[in-house]
Computed example of a mutant assay.
Amino acid sequence: MEEIEIWEFVLKWALARMSTQHNVDNLSQWTSSNFEELEKILHDLIPHIRWFQIPSKLFWRKVNPFKSIFPKQLYEDIMGYYCDPDTPPTNAILPLRQNGKLIGGYNPLSLHPYNSYTNSNGSWQSTSDSFLFSFTKKEEINSAYITRVNLDSQVYAVCYGSNYGPAFGSGWDLIIDRNNIIKTCGRGTYLDVYNIINSGHNHILEDYEVYQVVKK
């Protein structure tokens, strides 16, 4: 099922759960309360649709009329992506959920063995574009915190190893280890990583997702 079909299915499902029936072909008759009710029903589903995979013409025709139900930052990311596909949208990143907190990192490279530096623990690649982030409250953009790669040690910005999940930093600043463990082992590459995740503790992930940004 394509993403636009998922949106149409989810929208139809939500409309059936609204307190009164509404015609999506005549949104001029909708009130602000109608949109607010729809937003509450779809609030937890909207972030899970891959909006960036919907062609811009279809998005404008079938999704844009419901702009008011989107989180402001997400909608701006979508519009920014359509205007400039070379700019990675902030929502198409690697999100990690831990105890209601959203923790993640952006890796602008493909997930495969690298060659900037290698040892028995894995391989690293240099990039100045990666960063780590967290949301204390995942619904509130103002709760976001970002730490960018330290340019003096960017050779260790992102890491690949066959025995663990996505990893960032030299030793590692952020890593998904076996058994759904997320942790930091130091702050050699992302100097403010301790503002994102507590040092010296293993945290259990509820789940994690990896999104790929594809240039069209």
Results as ranks from 00 to 15, higher is better:
42 L>W: 01
53 Q>D: 15
154 Q>P: 05
106 Y>N: 08
24 V>F: 00
169 G>C: 04
166 P>T: 11
125 Q>A: 15
2 E>R: 08
49 I>A: 01
49 I>Q: 03
70 F>S: 01
78 I>Q: 02
15 L>F: 01
26 N>K: 12
100 G>Q: 11
185 C>Y: 15
195 N>H: 10
95 P>A: 04
154 Q>F: 00
169 G>K: 01
83 C>Q: 09
74 L>S: 04
144 A>V: 10
8 E>S: 13
133 F>E: 12
184 T>N: 12
85 P>C: 05
16 A>K: 11
59 F>G: 00
80 G>I: 12
85 P>L: 12
183 K>V: 02
30 W>S: 14
143 S>M: 07
86 D>F: 14
74 L>I: 03
147 T>P: 06
114 Y>C: 09
13 W>L: 04
142 N>T: 13
10 V>Q: 10
20 T>E: 09
214 V>F: 05
50 R>D: 13
107 N>M: 02
7 W>K: 05
181 I>W: 14
178 R>F: 10
181 I>P: 03
138 K>E: 13
171 G>F: 10
163 N>V: 05
88 P>N: 01
33 S>V: 01
10 V>H: 07
109 L>A: 08
54 I>M: 11
193 V>S: 04
111 L>N: 14
74 L>K: 06
144 A>E: 11
127 T>M: 05
210 V>A: 06
199 S>C: 05
90 T>I: 08
17 R>M: 03
104 G>I: 03
35 F>D: 09
199 S>R: 12
